[in-house]
Write a protein that binds this DNA or RNA. Sequence first.
DNA 1: CTGAAAGCGCTAACAA
DNA 2: TTGTTAGCGCTTTCAG
Lengths: 334, 334
Amino acid sequence: MATIYDVARRAEVSPATVSRVVNGHANVDPTLAERVRRAMRELEYRPNAVARNLRRSRTTLWAVIISDIGNPFFTSLVRGVEDVAQRAGFSVVLCNTDEDPTKESQYLDAALTEQMAGVIISPSGRANHVNRLVDARVPVVVIDRQVSGAHVDTVLVDNEHGASLATTHLIESGYERIACITGPEGVFTAMRRLRGYRRALEDHDREYDPDLVRHGDFRSDGGYRAMASLLALRPRPDAIFAGNNLMTVGAVECLVDSRIEVPAEMGVVGFDDVPWAHLVRPSLTTVAQPTYELGREAAQLLTQRIATPDRPPTVITLETKLQIRDSSLPRSQP
Amino acid sequence: MATIYDVARRAEVSPATVSRVVNGHANVDPTLAERVRRAMRELEYRPNAVARNLRRSRTTLWAVIISDIGNPFFTSLVRGVEDVAQRAGFSVVLCNTDEDPTKESQYLDAALTEQMAGVIISPSGRANHVNRLVDARVPVVVIDRQVSGAHVDTVLVDNEHGASLATTHLIESGYERIACITGPEGVFTAMRRLRGYRRALEDHDREYDPDLVRHGDFRSDGGYRAMASLLALRPRPDAIFAGNNLMTVGAVECLVDSRIEVPAEMGVVGFDDVPWAHLVRPSLTTVAQPTYELGREAAQLLTQRIATPDRPPTVITLETKLQIRDSSLPRSQP
DNA sequence: CTGAAAGCGCTAACAA
DNA sequence: TTGTTAGCGCTTTCAG
């Protein structure tokens, strides 16, 4: 690999001049600049970002740390991040933790030791992970899940409100025994969505019954198992609110396998849109999240945090929207 | 951020000794080592990977460059890569090109300038991109799509054979006018799958009719549009072979919207499994690819390439398997 | 077994 | 406008 010295020698200038041409910083005599550019071309010179990063003590890479690369929620979000990052001159790399705190910790280490310019993270676990970044003064934005006790920019959706909308919709459509499949205990979004479900019930003078609640793993399998367990109840629930997209899919798979008709025998509303929802019969009522915008907002916060590290942290909450489709058609009266 | 000098001073040793403790390279007196470790803890010392990388002129990051992060094919593949990488002490970062050569080029630049330890790429475009890596002696493995004229490790599936199996299956199930939706012109997998389709037809003394072929974009929308265009034909096709998972989804969506019964009015076979295939009615016959293994094999080749840069390139071809489900049920005789 | 010192490739004062 | 030079933080000879 040619270095900046090789180029300098060939162009008969100093390394500093080459650096100036490469970075377009200072004014360089056009003749020299041209000579430098030619030398670069001839030597196929490519700046060594590692050396540059060391010298400048900053990099141009953002890490986006997410918990499930297989969930379209995150892939859409990542696109939002990418589009903003690119315009601001950063490259985005993705790190997939599979909801595993060990993996998350490893990627945090990588982000720290590699001196990444910034991190956008949907934290799987406790606050201390995020605080490691904050303490090390790495610009960081938390996305999707609030971290209590971390003083950090955050982008959320109105989980509780969305869940409440969904549940209210089921109530008003005439469903009587509405169950809930929420996410893992201790995960922020899972707790908020459960709270919204509960609030809606209580607002309509329904009893909140913990027996009708299951905790899944935010993946399809968990939704399937939770649904199966709910189906064993007597009396059986006649509707369910599922706390994320993949668990909705799993729950519906279970209903299909059990030959239970949706919505005739079981109303279904899910949180977050299901990919290829059109293909699923019947079409699914969901609480739609602005996933792409979530990514955009996070990326914008991150650029601002990088520009002004000492600004006070912001929390942005985006709105969800209830998309009524066929899986929650009004209950025909007996 | 504490540096190695800070630690050395506190532990009253030389930076070299700290380095030895950190890397466990040479033998260090246990007393000193303990002093160093304590100093590290007290200062929350974290080695600066940028400086280390510069000094060692190698890094510990792999880039996986893929064309569509929204396609489960790639997400499963990435998991295969991650599992191997982690064991070998590398971190994996993902780069999404959205099939855009400009983005691809940018990520290649990033991989080069950041001196990444290795690259696994599913190239969207021409050979020259990959050759930039090979020429720069960056360890690289090409995955999913062969690059003609690049002397490089490659992991593929038997696209032609799989496509031929799928088409033969439709023929033997009694379908008469079998159309094909393949991928973008010039994309390796698209060409091979089209060739398999054609070969199967000709092997069964059917005429290959270019009017029955459409080129989609490997995404759902493209599949939808291609299907719509095929439906305008008179006589209409009575079966289709779709060249990847998302286009299969799009094609089926189009059929649903057009109220065309599958398989009664249109047999469907897709290449690559569709996520949540259970939910799609009827269940879809597909050519299943070993996506996770694809990633594993690629990662293994990459570790070998890094260990022995001058070994001759290998091409590995994994087998696909026809998964027969309901969307291609034997045609009932008229 | 330990320390001194050179240098990875680049940038940014500072001087000329 | 250009060049000289001193590091960024780390590893790794080479002496001791």
